[in-house]
Nucleic acid binder design. Structure first.
Lengths: 240, 240
DNA sequence: GGCAGGAGTTCTGTTGACAGTTTTCATTTC
DNA sequence: GAAATGAAAACTGTCAACAGAACTCCTGCC
């Protein structure tokens, strides 16, 4: 049961084990290896990762704070199950944050920053035309993170990122049609136009409109209702 | 050194020690008992609170996530020192969040919710006329939190609260003039008008304007540059 | 057949102890 | 007198073990 060898946890000592465990757990959650509702057994995780329960506990609490995990006293921690309503709230919040970043960036973006954003939009255009959904998806995340980094504060970047990770808890079946990619990238271009023109209000409005568009595209997707494999006899699932 | 008795930590067992310790540490930080830059010695805190290092460690990491504390590997955790620039960023973020909450609330506030907000504004009006700064301050926080709870999502409420706590790290010398209180409450009334009219855009604009006003009032205050008492020979301070 | 009750197991919450790193401080050297 | 050196102290990171709560599953009862 204890798969210690292949883990990267035994190499680095320059950062704490807890942060490494946190990264690994986050990867497992975002990849779907630990699906929403599944339990995070401290002992089992510790054994699996070849560390003791201390760092695992610390990592799990961190994920709780960032919103990926829900903890109940004396019962344990579970991968968060995001309802559609909560997901819509997340979109609204992200819209507010993107708007904030766009507004701030419009007044102070450097030539280099604008060029980088333009480049990303062009690359997304290529990906959309080639129907390369995975590549578009990755570029899209990069674009958003770059935008937030340039326009937002450190805190805003992290919060926005946390919210984005939350969405992967429900976004599962996101097979995107090329038409949707073009639509999405069109909104990116609108943001870029606002930034290039130095029009803070236009950039903000475009940013918010883009997230609202994403919200609509999300709603249009068929909901992936688990179909839990249930191979292992998991004992406890998340309550409520 | 070990003041165990008066602490409320020994009574409750229905929630984890770590959460109780976190609450106590937060209180100590917000009250200024642990000023920015000061070190959080795990051993000393554990002894002082009558628990072991585990829960203390967990609590400190939680505070790190929420922004009140900064942790350096192998060096420890320190109460965060907020620069003026960071504080201004926080105001901007809070403006975006309040705007988001006001916009959402305008469309769906119930009669009871509007009445509660109106009541708070009236009470603040009384406090401002009576020059009761402490009471105004408390009511103001309640108003903001109520507004966020009604209009925002769970996540937004917590994030907004975290940002507010961060501001106390620098806001220290906030002796408020009655004139400022009236000004601030006038902005509250503008928000209320927007909500009562069901005008989402007006409510949002008023919410953002209020936080911008708070930002200006913050900038107008004299900065309280520590004047660290340095009674005890504290060993280490926060680097950088 | 379904349901209440209780022993056994599992797992979390907490503690105390050990190892390694960082800091402190006295001593030496220039 | 100031900088370098090295030993001692302090503290963090990690681990292993214990106590108590929660869950599971079996047994007995209706």
């Amino acid at each position: 049961m204890a798969e210690i060898s292949a883990s990267p946890l035994h190499i680095v000592r320059t950062q704490s084990l807890a942060s490494l465990v946190a990264g690994e757990l986050e990867r497992m959650i975002l990849s779907g290896e630990l699906p929403p509702g599944s339990r995070l057994n401290e002992q089992a995780l510790a054994a699996r990762l070849g560390v003791s329960r201390g760092p695992v506990r610390e990592a799990v609490r961190g994920l709780d704070r960032s919103g990926l995990v829900v903890t109940v006293v004396n019962q344990g921690s579970f991968v968060r199950q995001l309802s559609v309503e909560e997901a819509l709230d997340v979109f609204d919040l992200r819209a507010a944050l993107i708007g904030y970043a766009c507004e701030r960036l419009a007044g102070r973006a450097t030539k280099e920053e604008l060029e980088e954003l333009s480049r990303l939009v062009r690359e997304m255009d290529v990906a959309a035309e080639a129907d390369a959904a995975a590549q578009y998806f990755a570029l899209n995340i990069t674009f958003h993170n770059t935008l937030m980094s340039m326009g937002g504060s450190q805190r805003a970047v992290r919060f926005y990122g946390d919210l984005g990770k939350e969405l992967t808890l429900i976004r599962r079946k996101g097979l995107v049609a090329p038409e949707r990619m073009r639509e999405s990238n069109g909104e990116h271009m609108a943001i870029l136009r606002g930034l290039l023109a130095g029009d803070a209000q236009a950039a903000r409005a475009a940013g918010e409109a883009h997230i609202r568009g994403g919200k609509q595209r999300f709603l249009a997707l068929p909901l992936d209702n688990g179909a839990a494999p249930a191979t292992a006899p998991r004992r406890r699932q998340q309550p409520a």
